[in-house]
C-alpha cells in the first residue's frame, strides 16, 4: 500500500487515490485529421513497462486533483510526483 505525497494535500494512504494510466498522452487537437491507425494509437495503445513509468494519479477521495507520478514498477518506488502541466523530471 503506497504512501502518496499528493502535491496539494501531502502524504496520504493509497486508498484515497485512483490510478489513471500512462501519463503524457495528449489528446490530439485535430482528431478528424487523423487516420484510423493514428487515432487507434492514441485511443488504445498504452505502455506497460517493467521499470520506470510515468503515470497519472487522481486524489479521488481527497482534493480530486489529478497529478503525475514517476514510479518504478519493478519495486514500486515512487521517484517523483509533479502537478499536471509541469515538466516531467528528466530521467
Amino acid at each position: 500500500m503506497f504512501l502518496i505525497n499528493c502535491p496539494y494535500c501531502g502524504e496520504r494512504d493509497q486508498q484515497e487515490f485512483k490510478a489513471g494510466g500512462e501519463a503524457h498522452i495528449e489528446r490530439p487537437k485535430q482528431p478528424t485529421e487523423l487516420s484510423d491507425d493514428e487515432w487507434a494509437e492514441y485511443l488504445f495503445m498504452r505502455k506497460n513497462i517493467k521499470g520506470v513509468q510515468f503515470e497519472r494519479w487522481n486524489h479521488a477521495h481527497g482534493c480530486r486533483k489529478w497529478f503525475n507520478m514517476v514510479r518504478d514498477t519493478s519495486n514500486d518506488e515512487i521517484k517523483a510526483i509533479y502537478k499536471m502541466g509541469e515538466k516531467p523530471p528528466s530521467q
Binding site: 489513471g20 495528449e26 497519472r56 487522481n58 479521488a60 480530486r64 486533483k65 489529478w66 499536471m84
Partner: peptide, 13 residues
C-alpha cells in the same frame, strides 16, 4: 463527475 474533472484538469485546463 470524475471523467469531466479529468478532461478539465488534464486536457482543457
Amino acid at each position: 463527475l470524475g471523467k469531466l474533472e479529468d478532461y478539465l484538469q488534464t486536457e482543457w485546463p
